Amino acid sequence: MVKVLGKDSTCSIARSLEVLGDAWTLLIVREAILSGATRFQEFRDALGVAPNILSKRLATLIEEGVMERRTYRDDGARARDEYVLSEAGRSLSVVIAALGEWGRLQRPRPDGTSPGFTLEDSGEPARLAFVTADGEVVSPARLVARRTEDSRVPAT
C-alpha cells in the first residue's frame, strides 16, 4: 500500500507520485518500456539496484496495476516470475518521454542518451506535443495551467 503524499491527496499529480515518486520505480518502468525488460535479473543488470529494493518496487508496481506478474519456465529450470507492463504501465511512455526530453534539454551531457520513440509499423519518429482539439501544436510557453476537477478535464 502506498502512502498518501502531502495534504492534497485529491491532486492527480500527488496521486501519481504516491505510486511513481521513487527514482528506482521510474527507472524500472523505463527499462520495461525502452529495453523490454521483464525479468528480475534483467532489471538488476540494467539498474544495479539492490535485490530487496527491486523486490519492493516491483511489488508496489504490481499492487498498483502498473505491472502484472506472470509465471514462466525455461527448459529444465524451475518456474519463475516475470514482470510485464499493464495497459496503465504502457501508458507511462509519455511520462518517460517527457522526463527524457526535459533531461536532454535542461541537463545536457555530451555522453548522454535519451529515449527515442518511433511508430512500430513505419519507424517514423514521434515526438511529444501539446495539441489543441483542432490539431494545432502548441508551445509550452503559450500554456497556462490551472487546477481542474478530473471530471472536467477533456479526454485525450
Rank of each mutant, 00 (worst) to 15 (best):
142 R>M: 15
140 P>A: 07
84 V>I: 10
133 A>H: 11
89 G>F: 03
62 I>C: 07
87 E>M: 10
90 R>Y: 01
77 A>Y: 01
129 A>K: 03
130 F>E: 13
92 L>Y: 00
109 R>L: 06
73 R>T: 00
139 S>H: 12
70 R>Q: 06
80 R>H: 04
110 P>G: 14
145 A>C: 06
98 A>H: 14
134 D>W: 08
85 L>D: 02
71 T>S: 02
136 E>D: 14
118 T>W: 11
95 V>L: 07
118 T>C: 09
116 G>V: 10
91 S>H: 15
137 V>Q: 12
130 F>L: 10
76 G>R: 03
62 I>D: 04
113 T>A: 14
127 R>I: 15
141 A>E: 15
106 Q>C: 06
130 F>R: 02
110 P>N: 15
147 R>H: 08
107 R>E: 11
137 V>I: 10
108 P>W: 12
96 I>D: 05
86 S>Y: 01
135 G>V: 04
118 T>P: 06
106 Q>D: 07
83 Y>T: 11
74 D>G: 01
146 R>Y: 10
134 D>M: 05
90 R>S: 04
122 S>A: 13
139 S>C: 12
149 E>F: 07
65 G>H: 01
95 V>R: 02
96 I>A: 04
71 T>V: 04
110 P>D: 15
118 T>L: 11
66 V>K: 02
66 V>A: 03
109 R>Q: 08
142 R>Y: 14
95 V>C: 04
62 I>K: 03
114 S>N: 13
142 R>T: 12
106 Q>T: 08
120 E>F: 11
106 Q>P: 04
135 G>I: 02
